[in-house]
Amino acid sequence: MNQLFEFLLRQRNLLLFVLLQGISLWSVFTYNNYQHTLYFNTTNAWAASILSTRQEVASYHQLREINGELALENQKLHQQIFQLQAQVQQKADLPVFFSTAALDRYKPIACKVIDQSTRNSQNYLTIEKGYKDGIKPGMAVISSTGIVGKVISCTPDLALIVSVLHTSNTVSAKIKSSGELGYLKWPGYQTEVAELMDVSKYKKVVKGDTIVTSDYNAVYPPNIPIGIVAKVGLQDDGTFHDIKVMLLTHFSTLRYVYVIENKFSGQQEKLEQAKPKID
């Protein structure tokens, strides 16, 4: 027994080292499990207050740019109002497809970004709204120019968003002009460029095509702009196009985002879970 204690005492540095490494690694590999690590990220209250102050100072120096962005966005919103009014008119003419619920299926919630990273291989954002404002994990997040990511965890006042700039956060996408489906994946470097995968080489893709979210997307509303095709090549295996997409969202200067509340998501989930087996 004595020898054991002596041994432990002699090896205490090694044991402490192994223990702490174990804790760190456990934390690394359970990061998806947000209950475990809920308070060990930037949604932690005091970390958030420090970062929020920092962001306030920084955004003061960017007021001019932000004003510009807001003006542009207003312009876009007005344009959309006109488009939607026209659409509503049209739908009224075709009563077969008209669904009153579908008209306000998506509701945007404007949020301030208090912290973000863009230079890592796995990037996250923290926003200043949480459960209290109706934000839930799984909701889509877009900016005035394009998609941003999705909410992965919430506290009452804050939420953590996994950015599109994350190697395992893929987005179902399509080419706007042809409707060709694929998925968007960020390769882990270059903040402005992502790749569109799974588009067969026999389909026509042209530099300059717009990429938008697809209709089969579980997270994002359809037709949210993602990026512009910047380069088209052939992948090594020779079956798919190698498409580089310039992202439309400027992640490094992101200050305001919109979390999209999907009013159907609960119902859709319930329906799909309760799906009877057909055999």
Binding site: L16, F17, L20, Q21, S24, W26, Y31, N44, A47, N120
Partner: peptide, 29 residues
């Protein structure tokens, strides 16, 4: 011992601010 414990505390603090969940703690320890 102090060095290792200090490294862990330091790494964990960085992890909170970087959203890296234990990676800084691992490397620093």
């Amino acid at each position: 011992v102090y060095l290792i414990l200090g490294g862990f505390a330091l790494g964990w603090l960085l992890d909170i601010f970087y959203n890296t969940h234990g990676m800084h703690a691992f490397a620093t320890v």
